[in-house]
C-alpha cells in the first residue's frame, strides 16, 4: 500500500515531430510516516514529477498507484479520497493564498469543503493555528500583510485540515531565509511524527534533504537513482 510511482515518464513536444524526454522509468514509493527526498539540478523535472505524483498533471507513460489502484481509471469516490489524501505544498509562500481574500476566508472555505458544521469552524481553526504555532490575530489579515514564514506555516496548516496521508513538498523552504527555514522544517518533522504523514520532499538543497529524508533519490539525465540515507 502507499503511494507508488511506477515507471513514470514525461515528454514534451518541442516541435511538430520532435519530442524532448525529461525523465523516464522513474519508480519509487512513498510510505506513511517516512520522507522521500528528491534532488537534482534545476530543469530536470523535479517539480513536474511532484505535480504528477500529486495528480495535478498526467504522465506520458507509467502510472501512479494510490492504495494499490492506478490513478487513471479510478472511480469518482476513489478519486475524491485520493484528492483529499494527497496534498501539495508549493515553493512560493506569497502565492499560497488568494491575495483578494482574508486568511480566515481561505481557511473557512476549506472547512466548508470538508462539510464541517459552521459552529466548529472557530474551534478547528484555533486548533490548526496552535499546531503550526501562529496567533489567531493573523486570520483577519490579507496575505500581503504576512511574512513568508507565516504564510508557509499557514499553508501547511490549511493542508493539515484535510488530514492528508501524503504531502508533496515542492521546495517548501527555498523562498525563506535560513532561520525561518529551520522553523518550517522542524514544524514539518513534528507534524510528521504526530500524524504519520508521508512526505515527498523536492529540494535542490542537500542539507535540507539529509535533515529530513529517510531515503532519497537524485534525478540526473532523466534517470532516478535511489539511495537510503
Amino acid at each position: 500500500m502507499g503511494l507508488i510511482a511506477k515507471n513514470l515518464a514525461r515528454t514534451y513536444r518541442t516541435g511538430l515531430w520532435k519530442e524532448k524526454c525529461i525523465f523516464r522509468g522513474v519508480t519509487f514509493e512513498l510510505k506513511s510516516g517516512k520522507t522521500f527526498g528528491l534532488m537534482g539540478p534545476s530543469g530536470e523535472g523535479k517539480s513536474t514529477l511532484g505535480r504528477i505524483v500529486a495528480g495535478l498533471e498526467k504522465p506520458t507513460e507509467g502510472t501512479v498507484c494510490f492504495n494499490g489502484k492506478p490513478l487513471s481509471g479510478m472511480k469518482k469516490a476513489e478519486y475524491a479520497a485520493f484528492r483529499r489524501s494527497v496534498q501539495m505544498m508549493f515553493q512560493d509562500p506569497t502565492e499560497a493564498f488568494n491575495p483578494r481574500k482574508r486568511i480566515e476566508q481561505s481557511i473557512f472555505e476549506v472547512l466548508n469543503l470538508l462539510k464541517t458544521p459552521e459552529t466548529e469552524h472557530a474551534l478547528r481553526t484555533k486548533k490548526m493555528l496552535e499546531t503550526v504555532g501562529l496567533s489567531e490575530e493573523l486570520l483577519f489579515r490579507y496575505p500581503s500583510q504576512l511574512s513568508g514564514g507565516q504564510l508557509q506555516r499557514l499553508a501547511l496548516g490549511r493542508i493539515l485540515l484535510l488530514e492528508p496521508e501524503y504531502i508533496v513538498l515542492d521546495e517548501p523552504t527555498s523562498a525563506l531565509d535560513v532561520s525561518v527555514q529551520a522553523q518550517v522544517l522542524h514544524l514539518l518533522k513534528r507534524v510528521q511524527a504526530e500524524q504519520k504523514i508521508g512526505y515527498l520532499l523536492i529540494s535542490h538543497d542537500e542539507a535540507v534533504v539529509h535533515f529530513m529524508a529517510d531515503s532519497y533519490g537524485i534525478i540526473k539525465n532523466g534517470q532516478l537513482n535511489i539511495t537510503d540515507a
Binding site: A54, R83, M88, F90, E95, F97, S106
Partner: peptide, 19 residues
C-alpha cells in the same frame, strides 16, 4: 500557487473560477 492548491484540495472547477 493558490489555484493549484485549490485544485489539489479538490475544489470544483466552478468554485475555483468563481472564487
Amino acid at each position: 500557487g493558490y489555484v493549484k492548491s485549490a485544485r489539489c484540495m479538490g475544489f470544483s472547477s466552478f468554485h475555483i473560477m468563481r472564487s
